[in-house]
Design a binder for these strands. Structure first.
Length: 572
RNA sequence: GGCAGCGUAGCUCAGUGGUAGAGCAGGGGAAUCAUAAUCCCUUGGUCGGGGGUUCAAAUCCCUCCGCUGCUACCA
């Protein structure tokens, strides 16, 4: 049977992630992973923090901590937020792990041996005051084009022109503001991406049908514009050290570029998972050689990550051939941005909602459903508290929550809290089953196609069908004159509740469990309903004792919305 | 500047050559099991502007306007 390997783009270690990061990679990866587990597939769902790179070093400096301590703290914070959202990773690792260091160095050695790495001398900006090399964007000065006095060395934010640090007038370090900077020669390793254009072209074109247009067009653009070789080392301290046996030690003291080691962490974290769970060398069967032939690999990411996953990482993988045949991604799902109230989420301006504070406001399921139903799949989408409250109140509280509530309470008050066994299903029930057969298939197909917005629309339509049925069956009316007829409606209602618990589990796991447990105890993985609805909806044993759960989704009040808008920033 | 995407009902969005759609919001009605929750009916759009191709254009082509993103050393 096919095994399913799923990775989410790695959240950068530098601070708690906002809802956009959640919506654009981690959450859809989790929903899809749960869906596949529910279907009974052997599934490995992985994520990790991306810890290297100069922003981490500088943030640690800013916080007055050494980098390792800073990362340890930030990792704990991110892990807690991830757990809070019920992201069910088989392992949530760290790119600074020993496993990733080993894998990164391994790939570099193979690439070197295969002649895919060049040693080149480049000009880098060095700050004497900070005693370190600076990335282009950490050099600031006056833009030679528009005169903006805080232009960055990579691009002027004012006139949007692309710059080189040496173009800047009166350049200075963004770290210390010191003008005492100079240009120094520095030796670096370059990955000869240009050698791989034909292979990449063939591979990308072969996947056109199963990648979103967004992903294909980004990948295609990079190839069209002419792929340049990319420097994969940096003059920093924090990162995977370049081993001395590459290029006769010319790179001594340097580290790999974060975008070289971060994707390799997908493999590194698999090893972390195996070691943490006593799985020995089985990690390799998910990735390499003929043992991994039955693995189907899914990646989830925001659009900013797409070039590195369609070009950079694939070149690393292709460059290790023919000695080693590592897996390339099969399905790559890219997302647009989630904006906040018409503008960007901003950490520095405290604008928007972040994962930790979101959970202070409401349980994870509210966010999970909303973010999936409004997934930024085809264009950027916009989060507002007004829309959020309207969707959550209508879909979760009124359509789903109230349905569960009305059926179970009626059963408790009129049928002694037991699944009534009287009467037989008739035409109304057959029509409902026919509709749900079609809708459940559509829902399943949309999830399979990674079309989350449409999947949520179908899930909601399934809940609506339950309400429509109940209105037609009207057991509260028949109860007075025809108890048997009322019993049929209640029995079907309870079976609907049960099936809803199964169908909703990948999206809203906590509420789905509560729904399931109103009827009977739930297994750790709530399985996907794959039989005809006529069977699924006649499943519950007659006489089974059920209970009415507490209110599943409390409504969000106007006062709460007003307070949150105030707290999290209004118009941009 | 270059490249890409987007622009459809008050709002969020489907729809890629064949009579303009869904959900929400708004209006009317039914029901009273339920978190005043549900169900039925319904108002509402010269599909950003202009031009072209076609028997037929939201859909294809040209052009203009507006918004957004990317542009390789932030990730």
């Amino acid at each position: 049977m096919t095994r399913i390997l799923i990775t989410s783009a790695l959240p950068y270690i530098n601070g708690v992630k906002h809802l956009g990061t959640l919506a654009g990679s981690m959450l859809p990866a989790d929903v899809f992973g749960r869906f596949k587990r529910a279907q009974g597939f052997e599934t490995l769902l992985l994520c990790a923090t991306d810890e290297h790179g100069s922003p981490t070093e500088l943030a640690a400096l800013d916080a007055g901590q050494d980098v390792r301590t800073f990362c340890d703290e930030q990792f704990a914070i991110q892990k807690k937020a991830s757990d809070g959202f019920n992201l069910s990773w088989d392992h949530f690792g760290r790119s600074s792990s020993a496993q990733n260091r080993e894998m990164t160095q391994h790939f570099a050695r193979v690439l070197w041996k295969n002649g895919h790495l060049d040693v080149r001398t480049t000009k880098q900006v060095y700050s004497n005051a900070d005693k370190r090399f600076l990335p282009d964007r950490y050099v600031i000065g006056t833009c030679p084009h528009c005169g903006y006095d805080r232009a960055r060395g990579d691009q002027c934010e004012n006139c949007t022109r692309v710059l080189d640090p040496i173009d800047l007038i009166s350049p200075r370090s963004a770290v210390s503001n010191s003008p005492d900077i100079e240009i120094r020669d520095s030796t670096h390793l370059f990955l000869k991406q240009s050698n791989f254009v034909p292979q990449l072209r063939e591979w990308i074109d072969a996947h056109r049908a199963e990648w979103p247009p967004l992903v294909y067009s980004i990948a295609n653009k990079w190839l069209e514009e002419g792929l340049q070789d990319r420097g994969i080392t940096r003059d920093y301290d924090w990162g995977v050290p370049v081993p001395d046996d590459i290029a006769d030690g010319q790179l001594k003291g340097k580290v790999f570029y974060v975008w070289f080691d971060a994707p390799i962490e997908y493999i590194g974290v698999t090893k972390e998972w195996a070691e943490a769970n006593g799985k020995g060398n089985s990690w390799r069967d998910w990735w390499e050689g003929s043992a991994a032939k039955d693995v189907r690999y899914f990646e989830f990411m925001g659009k900013d990550n797409v070039p590195f996953h369609t070009v950079g990482f694939p070149v690393t993988i292709m460059g290790a051939r023919p000695q080693e045949e590592w897996k390339l991604v099969d399905r790559l799902k890219g997302f647009n941005w989630l904006n906040y109230d018409g503008g960007k989420f901003s950490t520095s301006q405290k604008r928007g909602v972040f994962m930790d504070t979101a959970l202070e406001l409401l349980p994870a399921d509210y966010w999970r459903y909303y973010l999936m139903a409004n997934s930024p799949e085809n264009s950027d989408s916009n989060f507002t508290f007004d829309h959020f409250a309207a969707v959550v109140n209508k879909d979760l509280a009124d359509v789903l929550g109230n349905f569960v509530n009305r059926v179970t309470k009626f059963c408790v008050s009129r049928f002694d809290g037991k699944v009534p066994g009287e009467g037989c299903y008739g035409e109304d029930e057959a029509a409902l089953c026919a509709e749900l057969d079609a809708r459940v298939k559509a829902y399943t197909d949309f999830l399979e196609a990674l079309e989350f917005r449409k999947a949520m629309g179908e899930l909601r339509a399934i809940w609506v069908a339950g309400n429509e049925y109940l209105t037609r069956a009207a057991p509260w009316t028949h109860f007075k004159t025809d108890r048997e007829k009322a019993a049929v409606g209640v029995r079907m209602g309870l079976n609907l509740v049960h099936v809803f618990g199964h169908l909703a589990w990948p999206v809203i796991p906590t509420a789905a469990r509560a729904i399931h447990e109103a009827i009977q105890p739930a297994p750790a993985i709530i399985p996907w309903p794959d039989r005809p609805m006529a069977e699924e909806l006649d499943e519950l044993e007659h006489g089974l004792v059920i209970k009415a759960p507490d209110v599943l989704f409390a409504k969000i009040t106007d006062e709460q919305v007003a307070a949150w808008k105030e707290r999290f920033g209004g118009a941009p």
